[in-house]
Amino acid sequence: MNNSQLKNALLRLGDDALILGQRLAEWCGHAPALEEDIALTNISLDLIGQTQSYLSLAGSLFEEGIKSDDELAFLRSGREFQNLLLVEQPNGDFGDTIVRQFLFDAFALLRAEHIAQQSFNPEAAGIAAKAVKEIRYHFDHSSKWMVRLGDGTPESHSRVQKSLNDLWKFTGEMFISDEIDRSGLESGLLPNLEELKKEWDVKIDDILSKATLVRPEDGFMQTGGRKGIHTEAFGFMLAEMQILPRTHPGASW
């Protein structure tokens, strides 16, 4: 894995966490109950914290000079972000948010567990070891909500099933390997995505059966996030996220 591949692998880890963290922060003050408002924003905070660590590390690998985590988060354009399309999807209703979280948490947990164990990049291992503890907690939370909504009322069941059906087309992207994933696998930094998919399937199927939900068929899968090609909603989200530091460069408070 060369310097540029490592940098991009770290940017992907940071971008996944940043974009989902930003989406969850949009729930602040809007969640269906106070406890859930606190939960979603707590998860957001953990993700933004992971972002800071991953992006700072990625920022140290730019040939043109060190870039700070803030520069990377606030001053890159949409095409430069490499997050999964899944995490940028709009919050929708509470069920949409929970399904998005659940599908991502299962993946993120397995990925972080691998990175925490590898020795190719000890700094990334340190960040991931910390993240594992947090993501485990997030996955526990989203799994319980899947069961509660799926195995709840006919209304909650049908709505969360629809969320699952709608978001399923974004799950394929998590397991597609490109040159960065392959070099990451060779060096040991990144997991084997084919193997990881099997473990992900077990986690997902276990909860879906408890939630009495039907796993959608693997059909057409939407991709592009890793190449910087995003869905329509992403630009609007980015505009809101970046407007302050772009309007008032260097602003602090």
Partner: peptide, 13 residues
């Protein structure tokens, strides 16, 4: 347990 999340990241309610 009311909620696995609380007033700070380190606490549950």
């Amino acid at each position: 347990l009311v909620s696995p999340f609380g007033s700070t990241a380190c606490k549950a309610s």
